[in-house]
Structures are given as structure tokens and as C-alpha cells.
């Protein structure tokens, strides 16, 4: 081993693929992260507020299944679903165009065929995001359900007496009360999403980050540099930069949401 100063860092920062991977990572982190929570919070609220415990458990357990299955297996399935020529997704889109009433919504689909979900640089990232959202929303639903269950019923009663309607109950009572849970779930999402690897790796068959590197995340690139091209030095530099990125994102999150999030109401 030889000491090379900051050479590895300079190499990494000079590398257009590296910058591309950072951009992809941030893009995926946001687009695959935000919808998880936008979907999970209302779902959890509906589950807790309107369903009996037994039914609630069955539904949340069902929605949780993707979380316990291997990302590799799941990505393999989606790899087949996204298949351009005869994948089930394209077939369903074509099929929907023929359904009465809602058919006009999908009238564009037959002309667009075959949609190259995984081999078009503008569609690859959304395709990856969909898998990530699909896999992790169930987990967030569970966290938020636990959060909503900590809200005492008397609080809802008091708010009803004060004249809140259902939406106001959700917005003014339930949502502020689960702030610590939102904070926690967001922290996990940020840290997790900035390290995405398996979904893009499998969906691009591990081939240099997919078409025009549009699926190349930083962890993915780290793997390529370290284990395909066998340049551990550069890989180390990348992993430190990635660490800084994660630390920075977490710090920003803590700065803006931390105070309210950590205080909690319990």
C-alpha cells in the first residue's frame, strides 16, 4: 500500500460518473422517499381510526409483506414485470385502454408500445422508485399506525366537542401528535434511500448503472469501482464522500425537524 494523499478523492471528484451517481442518488432518495410517507400516513390513519383490530392487523400485515421479502427476489420479479416487449405492466396498460369508462385515460398506451421501462434513461429512475415505494411503504404504515395508536381517544373527543370535523381531527390533532414518529420514519428513509443498491443493481442487471448510467447510485458505483474495477482506494474515497452526504442530509433533517420531532408529546 502506498500513501497517495488526496489523489483518490481528486480522482473521484473528477469523475463524471461519480457526479452522475450522486445526482441519481439524490433524485431517487426524494422521488422514492416522499411518496412512501404521503401514502403511509393517511393509510395508517384510516387503519387505526376506522378498522377493528383484527381487520387492521390483516391489512397492515398484507401491506408489510414486501418489506420482509428479499430485495433481490423482489427486483427480479419487477425486472420481469417491466419487461418491454411482453412484460405484464405493458400488457396491462394496453388492456386498460380497452376498458370502458376509464379507457380514454390510457388511450395513449397502445401507441407508446413497447415502453422500454428499464432501458430508457428517462424511465429507469421512476421504475426503480416505484419498486422502492412498493417495498417500504408497508413498513412506514406500521410505524405510523403505532404512532396513531398512542393518541388518546379523549383528545379526539375533546376536539370534537370543540367542533372539529374529521379532516380537522386528522390535521390538527392526529398529525401533530405523531410528529416524533414522522421524524423517526423520515430519518430511516433518508439514511436508507441514500444507500440504495440492490433495486438499481438488479433492475439494470448489474451492468454499469443501466442505460447512460441513469440508474447508477453512489453505492452501486462504489461496488463497481471497488469490486469490478478493483480500485479500493477510489472506492474508499467514494464511501467517505457518501458518508458525508448521508451525515449532511441527516444533519439538515435534524436541524429543520429535529426540535419538534425529538420533543414529542408523550
Amino acid at each position: 500500500m502506498q500513501f497517495v494523499g488526496l489523489q483518490n478523492y481528486i480522482t473521484a471528484l473528477d469523475d463524471p460518473w461519480f457526479w452522475k451517481s450522486l445526482y441519481n442518488t439524490l433524485w431517487l432518495a426524494i422521488v422514492s422517499g416522499v411518496p412512501q410517507h404521503i401514502l403511509a400516513i393517511p393509510t395508517a390513519y384510516i387503519l387505526v381510526a376506522t378498522l377493528r383490530p383484527m381487520l387492521r392487523h390483516i391489512i397492515s400485515a398484507t401491506l408489510f409483506i414486501p418489506f420482509i421479502t428479499s430485495t433481490v427476489a423482489v427486483s427480479m420479479i419487477f425486472y420481469s414485470i417491466y419487461s418491454a416487449n411482453t412484460g405484464i405492466l405493458n400488457q396491462i396498460l394496453v388492456g386498460l385502454a380497452q376498458v370502458p369508462i376509464i379507457g380514454w385515460l390510457f388511450s395513449w398506451a397502445p401507441d407508446a408500445m413497447p415502453i422500454q421501462w428499464l432501458t430508457r434513461s428517462d424511465l429507469l429512475k421512476p421504475a426503480i422508485s416505484a419498486v422502492v415505494i412498493w417495498k417500504y411503504t408497508g413498513f412506514n404504515i406500521l410505524v405510523y399506525s403505532a404512532g396513531f395508536m398512542t393518541v388518546p381517544n379523549q383528545l379526539y373527543d375533546a376536539a370534537k366537542v370543540d367542533g372539529c370535523n374529521r379532516f380537522q381531527l386528522f390535521w390538527h390533532i392526529a398529525l401533530p401528535m405523531i410528529r416524533p414518529f414522522i421524524f423517526f420514519a423520515l430519518t430511516l428513509t433518508i439514511i436508507g434511500n441514500l444507500q440504495l443498491f440492490e433495486e438499481p443493481f438488479i433492475l439494470t442487471t448489474g451492468d454499469s448503472g443501466g442505460i447512460a448510467q441513469s440508474g447508477l447510485t453512489t453505492t452501486y458505483y462504489l461496488y463497481l469501482v471497488g469490486w469490478e474495477w478493483l480500485e479500493m482506494g477510489s472506492a474508499s474515497a467514494i464511501s467517505w464522500i457518501l458518508f458525508l452526504l448521508i451525515a449532511l442530509a441527516t444533519a439538515i433533517h435534524f436541524f429543520f425537524n429535529g426540535k419538534q420531532g425529538m420533543e414529542g408529546h408523550r
Partner: peptide, 15 residues
């Protein structure tokens, strides 16, 4: 809404 979510969740496994 819940049923739609369940279908989307389950479909890949059935498929």
C-alpha cells in the same frame, strides 16, 4: 383505497 393498495402489494407475489 385499501383494497387497491392490497392488490398492488400482492400482485407481484401472485404473478
Amino acid at each position: 383505497f385499501l383494497a387497491f393498495g392490497i392488490v398492488i402489494t400482492i400482485f407481484p407475489f401472485v404473478w
